[in-house]
Amino acid sequence: MTHTGEGQAHPLDAPRFAGPVVQCQNLSVRYGKNLALKDVTAVFPAGAVGLLGPNGAGKSTLLKSLLGFIVPEKGTMKVIDMDVATSPLEIRERIGYMPESDSHIPGMNAVSFVAYCAQLSGLPATDAMQRAHEVLYYVGLGEARYRNIETYSTGMKQRIKLAQAIVHDPDLLFLDEPTNGMDPKGRDEMLELIHDLAHNKNVNLILSSHLLPDVEFTCDHVVVMDKGTVATYGPIKALKGTTGRVYEMRIKGDEAQFISVLRGEGFDVKDSDEDVMRVFVPGAAGDNPKVLFELAARERVQVRHVRPSVPTLEDVFARAVGEK
């Protein structure tokens, strides 16, 4: 069994698909009375895109609609330039799906399960078996590959779901909450794998998650969803780099008075418990904390500590979801 050889496989950097991988236009999806997606228009560029949102935002619903599981009430969807309504099979030949809930094919061990999935995707039996072994090593289940999946732990079940999603070498991966139920070490390894797939193996992917760090670690772009709509989207760097900057600041002196002065200057201030305040300095002035020192000098308070705080995706997320 070779799982490291070169074979006649494509070079890893051969291009897959460059255009936008998913485009939805005015998409509305309904479960009975519940409108789960409301007129969603979104474009997912190639690369690794996070689909971020709180529980019930409609992330899984969007992925399932793209797979053709749910017929939308209205709107159009395109996946790798093909229409979901007319070419669902051609699309599914080229994508891999890691569902949110535990799932496997009953009565099979890991290798036969993954090889079976490869065959269902059209691979010949021998290729399917070989790739099943390779992929199981890749996701870290090499040692457990002859065990019945029903005996797997939650973390192992997540890994095998990833294995069946990548065994046929898809151009696009849908990962629905891939780190759910994993311990910190397993979670790191899963994120490492996803990062590797996206950045070294050139697999386009959409990662649905409510965990910001997961998306930040693995993705370049993000689409933020909330209550069935798209709240914001864009490259993570750009979203984080909105003009202005947040500083963490500690002073000695009349804190309440100084905060009201800062607010008077138009700065957004959040006061936390441990006498650290977070000051948002908007615009170009934010590039430099000089303005804070000047104000402190004017108000005769002593600056103990000033440190630029990198805006996390969490800030972006909170702002985007909060606006709604």
């Binding site: 799982h3 490291t4 496989a9 790739r131 390779e134 890749y138 590797d196």
Partner: peptide
């Protein structure tokens, strides 16, 4: 990561 070489592109038939 330990899993460095494990994933290959597939160039065979479908």
């Amino acid at each position: 990561p330990i899993h460095d070489q494990g994933y290959r592109r597939y160039g065979g038939t479908r």
